[in-house]
Amino acid sequence: MDQIQIGFLIYPGVIQLDVMGAYQVLAFPPNTDVHLIGKTLTPIVSNEGVTLTPTVTLETCPPLDVICVPGGGMGQVEAMKDPEILDFLKQQSVTAQYVTGICTGSMILAAAGLLQGYKATCHWAFRDQLAALGVDVVPKRVVIDRNRITGAGVTSGIDFGLTLLGLLCGEPVAQMTQLMMEYTPEPPFDAGTPETAGEEVVAALLQAGKPLVNAFWTQTQASAAHLR
């Protein structure tokens, strides 16, 4: 059986758990090869200050069965307008079995013109921006539309990874992986969605994240204009 080639695009300011939650899942079976794709092989620093080292570049990346784009902080604005990154995603999407994104990585896919006409999800705070890029946004944790698979915010990458692994390798392998990870979440607070967190918590988070939201809106408008 041929190895399944899976690639995660990484860039300065990427959200490390967007990458590593799904990476942990997808790297478990012996028949998957998981690559971290950078513009160069120079280590990059995530939004949280964790150093990630690319294993391949845009030029040396093999043809992928799965291309996955995680979200990011301010560095994502640069990724959304980087022609090398957008062209790479377009090229890989032609032959990839699945074109996927986690959190605001969906916005990078949309900036490349790869989600228009599809249902998709992203982090709850950026659904309007994703919709402004011509995407049919569905407020679910994981959304599958044909060969497009997207996950919502950050920790959704684990659910996304298990869903994708079930499609790639079968549900028994995905279930074994879930058991290996002992993934049975019992969060201490019921504050994981804006509906359950309450208005005060939502308002405080949106205020803290206002510079990022504003920067994303500016780039969203530029990307939308480019796609017209």
Rank of each mutant, 00 (worst) to 15 (best):
I4H: 10
Q5S: 15
I6G: 08
I6D: 08
I10W: 07
P12T: 11
I15N: 14
I15Y: 11
L17I: 10
V19R: 09
A22V: 08
Y23G: 08
L26A: 12
P29Y: 07
P29H: 07
P30H: 11
T32G: 01
V34P: 02
V34N: 02
V34R: 02
L36N: 01
L36A: 01
I37Q: 01
L41V: 03
L41P: 05
V45T: 15
N47V: 11
T51W: 14
T55H: 08
V56N: 09
V56R: 07
P62W: 01
P63V: 04
V66W: 04
V69R: 04
V69K: 04
P70E: 11
G71L: 04
G72Y: 13
G73C: 13
V77D: 04
A79I: 12
M80Q: 12
K81C: 09
D82F: 04
P83C: 04
P83H: 08
L89H: 02
V94P: 00
T100D: 04
T100V: 02
I102V: 14
M107S: 14
I108H: 03
L109D: 05
A111N: 04
A112G: 07
Y118N: 02
K119D: 01
T121N: 03
H123L: 05
F126N: 13
F126W: 12
L130C: 13
A131C: 08
A132S: 14
V135S: 03
V143M: 07
I144F: 00
D145V: 02
N147K: 10
G151D: 08
A152P: 07
V154W: 06
T155A: 12
D159T: 06
L164F: 05
G170N: 09
V173Y: 10
V173H: 12
A174F: 07
Q175E: 15
M180W: 03
M181D: 00
T184D: 10
P188G: 02
D190M: 05
D190E: 14
G192Y: 09
P194Y: 09
G198S: 06
V201R: 12
A208Q: 12
V213I: 15
Q219C: 13
Q219P: 01
Q221K: 14
A222I: 13
A222H: 07
H226M: 14
H226A: 15
